[in-house]
Amino acid sequence: MGERSRSNPSSLATCRSSRAGSGVVRIVGGKWRRSPLAVASRAGLRPTPERVRETVFDWLNHLLGSLEGLEALDLFAGSGAMGLEAASRGAARVRLIEKNGESAAKIDESVRRLKGEDCCSVVRGDAFELIRADAGLYDVIFIDPPYDALLQVKAAAAALERMKEEGLLYIERPEGSALDLTGLPLTCVRRGTAGQVVFELYARNGSFMAGQAKLPKEKLTKAQKAQLKRKEEAQ
């Protein structure tokens, strides 16, 4: 839900309207399934694609059992798609933080239209300032900052203070970008790619969730496969 500075800033899931830069995304599952979310008219706004959200929430349901009664924090809310998806699927409390005024207003409009005021709160402001002032703890924290800002590592470090012991961090980033979490007590438990998007779930080292790690096998090049075959034949 952040922004990126590439030539085609639109999401794979954003339906374009006749007004340049505007569009909608739809909630994938839960009580608000198929409900449209208006996307603010901002150059570079990039909501998380629907197929990514579907995969991520399948992971969360498998790991957590369900989102019923849980608490979620969406640090760089953008269109609000991740946070509102969590609320749609039963999260009891969702806090959506967005720095841009127009985007924050659009999310707030969506919350009111969906009658989600009882579980969703939209806060306009800087994510790092607000998370330092937040005394709450969360089961799931979504981290998808503007791509060109490369704030994923800084955000993950800040989010650890607000994540429950068996909580999960979602981190989204552009393919090919480095994500060095060295020094942070985090284990990647799920990883996926879709187009130019890499999306991952992290748990605390040593937690039950960390023990549920299931990552895709690394794809080998032809040269690596040949080298592995020679090694096996030599044994």
Rank of each mutant, 00 (worst) to 15 (best):
A77N: 04
M209V: 06
L96R: 07
P49Q: 07
G83M: 04
P145K: 01
A149V: 05
L67I: 11
A127H: 05
P174W: 09
N8M: 09
A38F: 15
I143M: 08
E102K: 01
D144Q: 12
D134N: 08
G21Y: 03
E109G: 13
R89Q: 05
L184E: 10
M209Q: 15
E232M: 15
D134E: 13
K154H: 13
L60T: 03
A127S: 00
A156I: 06
A149C: 09
L67W: 06
V24N: 03
L84R: 01
L63V: 10
D148K: 12
G90M: 04
P216G: 10
S41I: 03
E71R: 15
G23T: 11
A234T: 02
Y202S: 00
L75Y: 05
R16M: 09
E117P: 07
E3N: 00
M1F: 13
L137I: 04
N61Q: 11
I143N: 03
R132Y: 08
A157T: 04
L63E: 08
L150T: 08
R16T: 06
R113G: 08
F76L: 03
G176V: 11
V197L: 15
A156R: 03
S88L: 07
K106C: 06
K222A: 14
E233I: 10
V25Q: 00
T193W: 11
F57N: 03
L70S: 13
L160R: 02
R162V: 12
A87V: 08
K229I: 07
S10E: 09
M82E: 09
A43F: 10
P9A: 10
A13I: 01
D134V: 07
L151V: 00
A92W: 01
E54N: 04
R132P: 04
T221C: 07
E232V: 14
V140T: 10
S18L: 02
K219F: 11
Y138Q: 07
T55R: 11
A178W: 03
N100T: 01
T182F: 08
L151T: 00
D126L: 06
T55K: 10
P47S: 06
V94Q: 05
R230Y: 09
A133E: 10
